[in-house]
Simulated assay, not measured.
Amino acid sequence: MAVPVSGRMKELHYRARRFFLLRALACAFAGLLPARATAHVRTGRKAASAEEDLKKVAALLNGKTRDAWVFTGDSITQGAKHTHGHRSYPEIFAERLRWELARVGDIVVNTGMSGHTTRHIMNDMDWRVGQFRPQVVSVMLGTNDCARNQVTLADFEANLTSIVAQIRAMNAVPILHTPNPIIAEKAPERVSLPEYVAVIRKVAGRENVILVDHYAEWSAAMASRSAEVVHREWLNDPLHPNQTGHRQLAAALFKTLNIFDPAQPTCGAAYYEGAH
């Protein structure tokens, strides 16, 4: 025998069904959004901007907290071999930060790995970045992604967007870099690099991320001094910057973050301190 249901019970039953239906629809809708949008929905935070991020970096540099700065990318960031035993650009940054700016308590971590692409980093963010609980994350990629188009342009854009979203979800400031130009005729498998550079600029603009545009800086130098001279002085092979090239990468980063000081050795002044 059926038990009669009161009007109040019917109303409560209707409200419960409506609640679960709306929640299911919301979850389904969130699944259709890109990573950057779903991250915003989950956190409820106001979307960040490059200008605000530069202010955050300035506040970190002038603050009292001890901060972690993570650099990740491929062999260029790793500084593998081609620096001739000199410092790579993350190491030059560490010297600028921890010595010249007297932030000795800060930690600079380099998780660049030779041969890696956006796919490697996107799938390994916890190990490469998250475990260090960083305040700032610097990312330079593209030189391997473009090799024989092993990561398509569409996937490169999606991966880079996801990397930025994951960094922001850590409440860290992302910094994107374009890679340096290469000698394309001696590395024909990477002839499409300029297209990947365009995607980095596109993602940085759309996601409002700090961008260090090395490709533009080096291209301007090649236009004024000739490509042959710049290649000879700044590259160790068709792809990798030598120690001088890494100093150029570091200088561009310093200028972007407004911490370039020509009186300091990391920015080009002499290290030599006189007779001894």
Rank of each mutant, 00 (worst) to 15 (best):
V104W: 14
A251W: 04
N208I: 07
E95G: 08
T65R: 15
A250Y: 02
A147S: 14
S138D: 11
R133A: 05
A94F: 05
R87Y: 04
H177W: 09
T178H: 05
M125S: 08
H177D: 05
A48H: 09
A35T: 15
P174L: 01
H86V: 00
R36I: 06
R190E: 12
H116Q: 12
D67T: 07
N258G: 10
V3A: 06
T118A: 08
H84F: 06
F71R: 02
S88C: 13
L25E: 10
K186L: 09
N123I: 02
E228H: 05
A80F: 07
D237F: 03
L61M: 11
R119I: 04
R206H: 14
A251H: 08
H214I: 01
G31L: 10
Y215Q: 04
F156Y: 14
I183H: 02
N208G: 13
F29G: 00
V229E: 04
A24L: 14
E233P: 00
L257E: 13
K56A: 11
V209Y: 01
A269M: 15
R23Y: 04
N236A: 14
L176A: 04
I175H: 11
S6L: 05
D261T: 08
M125Y: 12
T43Q: 12
S219W: 05
I183W: 03
L33S: 14
S49H: 14
L33G: 14
F19D: 02
G85R: 12
V129A: 10
T83V: 08
K56N: 12
V230F: 02
I210C: 11
P34I: 04
M140D: 07
L257A: 10
P238H: 09
R232H: 12
T117P: 11
L211Y: 06
M122T: 08
H246R: 10
T161W: 00
L101C: 11
R148Q: 14
P4A: 02
L97E: 01
A48W: 05
T152Y: 07
P238D: 06
R225V: 11
F254K: 02
H240C: 02
G115V: 08
F260I: 03
A204N: 08
H231P: 05
A204V: 13
A198C: 13
M122H: 08
F132S: 11
R133M: 03
S226H: 07
G79L: 10
P265G: 05
R23W: 02
Y89S: 01
G7K: 14
D126I: 06
L160Q: 01
